[in-house]
């Protein structure tokens, strides 16, 4: 009984049961709640405590504070610039080039499947 319950999704070389994971998540959330209970209780709203601290610099406006899409993963895209150059060149928006890719794939598969 417990065996069939555990193996709810067999993957050939193992199994997976989401319900057990759900149980684990609930236990983890409980633990987090308990740990949170140990926190300091002298937090006061509307005092200096709630203000953002930016190493002593003045706070910017809300618009400028937000980390936007273009700010993220800059390092990753910069490091793989050569890959991205190729990829951007592929997606150049030209319909003829898109059809050309289709024809190239047909040609390549002809050679692979037709000849061998």
């Amino acid at each position: 009984m417990i065996d069939t319950f555990l193996k709810s999704l067999e993957t050939g070389s193992g199994f997976w049961n989401p319900l057990v994971l759900g149980l684990a998540i609930i236990i983890a959330l409980l633990l987090i709640y308990i740990i949170r209970g140990f926190g300091k209780k002298d937090y006061k709203k509307g005092t200096e405590q709630t203000k953002a601290f930016l190493s002593g610099n003045p706070e910017y406006s809300k618009d400028e504070m937000h980390i936007k899409g273009k700010n993220l993963y800059w390092g990753f895209t910069q490091a793989l610039k050569s890959v991205y150059n190729v990829l951007e060149k592929m997606h150049n928006g030209n319909t003829s080039d898109y059809v050309l890719w289709f024809v190239i794939i047909i040609g390549a598969l002809f050679i692979i499947i037709g000849v061998i």
Partner: peptide, 20 residues
């Protein structure tokens, strides 16, 4: 086989025929 598979793979958006 080549024509059918390529055409239908293009319809389903397989690279490098996914640009549309």
């Amino acid at each position: 086989l080549v024509l059918l598979v390529t055409g239908l793979a293009m319809k389903s958006g397989l690279a490098p025929m996914h640009m549309w």
